[in-house]
Design a binder for these strands. Structure first.
Length: 484
RNA sequence: GGUCUCAUCGUCUAAUGGUUAGGACACCAGGUUUUCAUCCUGGCAAUCCGGGUUCAAUUCCCGGUGAGAUCACCA
């Protein structure tokens, strides 16, 4: 078989039952990477056959999430394609046709039992301590399909041994094969049935899905045989687990909406990098991967077999790395919604200068206000910060006032560039005979009243002499009052 | 309970039938004129247990143990 001739087609097929969280996103990402790497097609299909669990607005959320990450699809919801429609609820005729074929071939039959009767069978099996198998209760049935009743697959129990692109060779015995429902009594197909039909019709070559499907795979294999269709390459992805618990990360375990990370100031580059390296690596010591590098280097056979925990601290670190990697222009575009309210009136040039100063200090873009608000607003003095300071607490109020006054004089004669300000500060160190720890601390505090700030000379330079002078003056006034 | 899967520092992982078991995050300590961050240096820390095969096992085999999944008219 010549693999270069096979067009790779992968899909992401979520059900619209809520927001997207990290596990689902990673499945989408890996499927997308495989397609991109091989110049293939990535399809977005929506599996909305459970009308009870469906949540309105989910499809939009899914699309928005994928778009935020830059995971684009070439066929599917929103854009159509040769295999439209891509919404399963619009494909009921197709499933019905294939179901009828199975009925005709004697591989599907009407389930005659009520839910109560089935429940009875299950309880009995439990009491007898034997596994429940529906096929033990098959009746000799006619090959007709009463559409108000569920349609079941007539399975052909046998052992299976198959290859999984991630897990390697897997095997099961015949006892896991049972007669499952193909079409529910409400007329909608089950996932077990319709995903097989759709994957076949859409020419899917690689099916990536998470670990919980591993035990139902034999059922699918049995169905592939009954339909006489070739199965795609199967790849099972290990779970993403919550950091503390041992549980698969799901909605109930506090898994966040992926878009929440966007709101919290994370970059899609960081999220992609993080998710890709959660359970995959290229065998080198590289930690930072761009999307292009991932497309180039990604491969199924290097995916980990065991589940990985979602470590948000690592994500945070990666986000900082990616923030630093962006050009200032690009970062400026990204932080658009994160400036403090008071920055609204400020000029682009001013904000750009400030951004350049704090770029190395941002872990997320949401850190922007706390790092920059005193550039836009007059900060509220809090003399407590002076009194509690490691160095300043040793000085009396007179000494502090003296330092502030000397600073006021020295800085008023500066040119306003960072370099000459630094020279003046250096001179001031000599004339006052103070250590930088003391002198710079007091100036920094009364200028910013912030717990931390960028290099002093640059901060002063960007603020400009007027603001510097007025804030020093205000501090001197406060000190004067205290000393009385 | 039946069936299936997995198992290297706290976390993400690399490697190999022979290595001082490597890297990264986190944490701790030190350095870069104040703070915070970056950056640099150093430190802490792992092959689940028991057998077998072998000159040699973390690696191969078997058995435990632990963890997870699944056994729906959910996907």
């Amino acid at each position: 078989m010549n693999k270069t001739q096979l067009p790779i087609r992968t899909r992401f097929a979520p059900s619209p039952t809520g927001v997207m969280h990290v596990g689902g996103v990673r499945t989408a990402l890996f499927s997308w990477l495989i397609a991109q790497k091989n110049n293939g097609i990535f399809i977005l299909r929506i599996e909305d056959t459970d009308k009870v669990r469906e949540v309105e607005g989910s499809i939009e959320q899914i699309e928005k999430s994928l778009k935020w990450l830059g995971i684009n699809w070439q066929e599917g919801i929103g854009i159509g394609g040769p295999n439209a429609p891509y919404l399963q609820s619009k494909r009921l005729d197709i499933y019905k046709k294939w179901a009828n074929q199975l009925v005709e071939n004697g591989r599907a039959y009407t389930d005659p039992y009520s839910k109560e009767e089935l429940e009875e069978f299950r309880n009995q099996a439990k009491a007898d301590k034997i596994p429940f198998l529906y096929r033990n209760h098959r009746r000799e049935s006619v090959n007709t399909w009463a559409e108000s009743k569920p349609l079941r697959f007539k399975s052909d129990p046998k052992p299976y041994r198959w290859n999984d692109a991630v897990m390697g060779e897997l095997s099961t015995g015949p006892e896991v094969i049972d007669d499952f429902i193909l079409i529910k009594s409400d007329g909608y197909p089950t996932y077990n049935f319709c995903h097989v039909i759709d994957d076949m019709m859409m020419g899917i070559t690689h099916v990536l899905r998470s670990q919980e499907f591993i035990s139902s795979t034999p059922k699918f294999l049995n169905l592939y045989e009954a339909l006489n269709i070739q199965r795609p390459i199967l790849a099972t992805l290990p779970y993403v687990m919550s950091i503390d618990g041992q549980k698969k990360l799901g909605k109930r375990d506090g898994a966040k909406d992926i878009l929440q990370y966007a709101k919290e100031g994370y970059l899609p580059e960081a999220m992609i990098n993080f998710l890709a390296t959660l359970g995959w690596n290229d065998g080198t010591e590289q930690e930072i991967f761009s999307v292009d590098e991932l497309i180039q280097k990604f491969s199924l056979d290097r995916i980990q077999k065991s589940p990985a925990r979602f470590d948000e601290k690592r994500l945070l670190w990666l986000n900082g790395q990616w923030i630093r990697r962006l050009s200032l222009d690009e970062l400026y575009r990204r932080v658009h919604d994160f400036w403090p309210e008071s920055a609204k009136q400020a000029s682009e040039k001013y904000k750009m200068q400030i951004l350049g100063l704090v770029q190395d200090r941002l872990k997320t873009m949401a850190d922007l206000p706390i790092l920059t608000s005193y550039f836009f607003d007059e900060p509220k003095p809090n003399w407590d910060m002076v009194e509690k300071d490691k160095y300043l607490s040793k000085l009396n109020i007179g000494e502090i006032m003296g330092l502030l006054k000397s600073a006021q004089i020295a800085l008023s004669s500066s040119n306003n560039d960072a370099k000459s300000i630094q020279q003046n500060l250096n001179t001031l160190l000599e004339t006052t005979g103070q250590k930088p720890a003391v002198l710079f601390s007091i100036i920094r505090l009364v200028i910013s009243w912030a717990p931390f700030s960028p290099a002093l000379n640059e901060t002063l330079s960007i603020l400009g002499p007027e603001k510097v002078n007025s804030r020093l003056k205000l501090a001197i006034d406060i000190a004067t009052q205290i000393s009385r």
